[in-house]
Design a protein around this nucleic acid. Structure first.
Length: 481
DNA sequence: ATGTCC
């Protein structure tokens, strides 16, 4: 066992690893966590990886990990790293294999109590409508030309082709389309993998969940978000499927080969990177943006499937499901942030971290300009999820970022050994949570015991003011891959 | 996360 990393407490929820902790660190590392969460963060390579991130050329201010952080490929999951656009690098490991994995929330005008008896049917219908599982395709099969439109247009493609509402676009981060996307930078192989996966959730922690609003923490913001006590809402969590995975795989290989020519020295080859302004860096950024657009289109098409199911079971228009917001949590974006009183153009890498822009930010829609943007934090299966709002403090301290979920504390393998899936399913049902799972193995991997305590994670970011609590959601039905 | 090893 290596020596324990020294953490200096800055605040109740903030710990610092000073730049002096390692000769190669260019900036300090910040860990956001209530003390109870530190033990989990020390159990794996999270803090080592965070210090590795602090060595990246062009990194600004600090390498940051959120309270849901855990070990990932190169970078910790739950990590935020901002590099200078002209002097810094871009690293696929800082974004993750599932490019633009993210979450959206649809709100209804229906109370759970009024339709309790229909939840089982609704969950069954959702399960029938929404393809799930590794490698699964869906009902949409796109030509190469249509794929180019999706990669360039993102969620707009779904709306233009009858799979979404125009009003949805106002409530998607970046309106569901990154303009830097270039379909020509996505390999034929990646395009092929994606051609039949729009409208599918995949596997792992991806899901479609029916929830009810259990608790409101801030009446005014909840009202602005269209949330009320007892309301039925639908939470969708998925990403760019095989296409994004292939983009990550392709460019990691390219970067590993190209690294020597850039003269970049990094402590771990999983931090493979290229100067953002280099041809390789730009090609990856344009391909990543295209994969991000695919993911936004995917969540839009899934919303269409949800609305179809809703119409069929609830006998009311699918349009009654309104999109509250859609957030990315695995992405790199060009953003301007103030550091020591000066504006900087940065490549903000968020890997298992959510944008949490505060009130007045020009990048969030007008209807949230007073409250800050909606932030959606799914908990582990069968526990609960949160709706938060972005803050000015997150803009000042974490490049406008917060946590993204409960965060795994046990490996998939360990969870499968420990958990008996049929028992778990019965327990969920006993708690009035209907589950339709693609496989028992997948269900076991996602057992709540394999995750951190979502309440502690959210309490950390709330107390640290990286986002503030608006509402708590309780699941009543879940579809998993 | 991922046609969980071309």
């Amino acid at each position: 066992m290596i020596d324990q990393v020294q953490l200096q407490q800055v605040d109740e929820c903030l710990w610092e690893i000073p730049k002096s902790a390692r000769a190669d660190m260019r900036v300090p590392a910040y860990v956001y966590a209530l003390e109870e969460l530190l033990e989990d963060l020390r159990k794996d390579r999270t803090l080592d990886q965070l210090m590795n991130v602090a060595t990246l050329p062009g990194i600004q201010k600090a390498a940051i990990v959120m309270p849901d952080g855990h070990e990932g490929y190169g970078f910790p999951i739950g990590g935020v790293a901002a590099t200078d656009v002209s002097r810094g690098v871009i690293s696929p490991g800082g974004i993750g294999y599932d490019i633009n994995c993210g979450v959206r929330l649809l709100t209804s005008s229906t109370r759970y109590a009024d339709v309790k008896g229909k939840i089982g049917e609704l969950v069954h219908e959702l399960s029938r409508m929404i393809p799930k599982g590794v490698g699964r395709g869906g009902r949409l099969v796109l030509s190469t030309g249509q794929m180019e439109e999706v990669l360039a247009g993102g969620a707009e493609w779904a709306v233009a082709n009858g799979y979404g509402l125009n009003e949805d676009l106002d409530h998607i981060e970046s309106r569901g389309r990154l303009e830097h996307a270039d379909p020509a930078r996505v390999s034929d192989h990646a395009v092929k993998r994606g051609h039949d996966q729009l409208g599918t959730i995949g596997a792992g922690n991806h899901f479609v969940e029916v929830d009810r609003v259990e608790e409101i923490y801030d009446d005014e913001t909840a009202e602005a978000f269209g949330l009320f006590q007892g309301q039925l809402v639908i939470l969708i969590h998925t990403g760019s499927r095989g296409l994004g995975h292939q983009v990550a795989t392709d460019y990691l290989k390219t970067f590993l080969n190209a690294m020597p020519s850039y003269g970049l020295h990094i402590p771990d080859r999983e931090l493979a990177c290229a100067p953002f302004s280099s041809e390789d860096g730009q090609n990856y950024f344009k391909a990543m943006a295209a994969a991000a657009n695919y993911a936004w289109c995917n969540r839009e098409v899934i919303s269409w499937e949800v609305r179809q199911s809703w119409e069929y079971i609830m006998k009311e228009a699918g349009e009654n499901l309104r999109l509250l917001y859609d957030v990315a949590h695995n992405i790199a974006k060009i953003e301007t942030h103030r550091i020591s009183g000066k504006n900087h153009r940065l490549v903000v890498h968020r890997k298992g971290a959510t944008r949490a822009f505060g009130p007045g930010s020009p990048e969030i829609p007008d209807d949230f300009s007073k409250t800050g943007q909606p932030v959606l934090i799914p908990g582990s299966m069968g526990t609960h999820s949160y709706v938060l709002a972005g803050t000015k403090e997150s803009m000042e301290n974490s490049f406008g970022s917060t946590c993204h979920g409960a965060g795994r504390r046990m490996s998939r393998t360990a969870a499968k050994k420990m958990v008996d899936a049929p028992t778990l399913k019965r327990e969920l049902l006993a708690n009035d949570i209907a589950v339709e799972a693609g496989s028992y193995a997948g269900l076991a991997e996602e057992a709540p015991v394999a995750y951190k305590d979502i309440d502690l994670v959210v309490e950390t970011v709330h107390r640290a003011r990286l986002a503030r609590k608006v509402a708590k959601l309780r699941p009543v039905g879940v579809i998993k891959g």
